[in-house]
Nucleic acid binder design. Structure first.
Lengths: 77, 77, 77, 77
DNA sequence: GCTCCGCTTCCCGTTC
DNA sequence: GAACGGGAAGCGGAGC
């Protein structure tokens, strides 16, 4: 390996590390918000489910829920 | 549920959504950097491994590698 | 490393490999069943959800669903 | 939903549950083997790495290791 | 269609 | 002994 290649590798690695650190910081922030919510009596797990549902098409979600009800009845739930 | 609780839930959900969006943006940035590296002839997969190794204690990594060599020999690798 | 250690390592590795293969076979079987169900017009994703629900305590599931409804209303879903 | 559909759903769900149970049993067996190995002084984590390596093409693994060494030197590892 | 990445879940170690 | 948090494995979805 020549020097230029090594320099490039170092550069790429450092750029990625910086971004990964930022990502980790944000993950920590999300965790903090969920903890805060929990401290005020809300359920973090359900909050995450709601966030996911809001990212999805409403019709799809409705259809899926309707189907699930049918299947649940079929197995006695 | 009273109005205050609903407001709190909305607030928590929106804060999480904002953070999740930021996280996604950074993930996209990382992907871009890896693509750029690939375009210059480097292996994105190996770059990621290097980033992970740099996050770990050197002695731990060295020990693990030494042990792995022993085990590999034991099974004929 | 002495010979005995190497033998032990080989033995452990082979035992694990055998078990992993069996596990993979069963995963394939599950996938086949889901495919068959899909072929008869059922939704594999919903079937898996039902299986998971049946593994959980009914009261927990009911409580979680009730809570989710509340949160959904709070954010206008 | 008619009775036949409900019967089919029940049947599919039960078949999947049976298979999932078998899979879980095997996972437990694997865990036992790793525990046993640990009890005799071997490192479970490394054993799992060896199992994974044995599943891969030797040339690929060798190439990857060679490349990794180059990159590690480039960043001073 | 396949690989690869991110998410979810599970398991373990720690702490109270 | 139970709950909590961190880490690893398995699964589903996205991107090539």
């Amino acid at each position: 390996m020549n020097n230029t290649s090594a320099d490039q590798i170092r550069s790429f690695v450092e750029r990625i590390e910086t971004l990964e650190q930022q990502k980790k910081d944000i993950s920590d922030d999300i965790r903090s918000v969920l903890q805060e919510a929990k401290g005020e009596g809300f359920d973090p797990k359900i909050l995450k489910i709601v966030v996911r549902l809001r990212n999805r098409n409403k019709d799809d979600v409705d259809n899926e829920e309707a189907l699930l009800e049918l299947y649940k009845e079929a197995v006695g739930l």
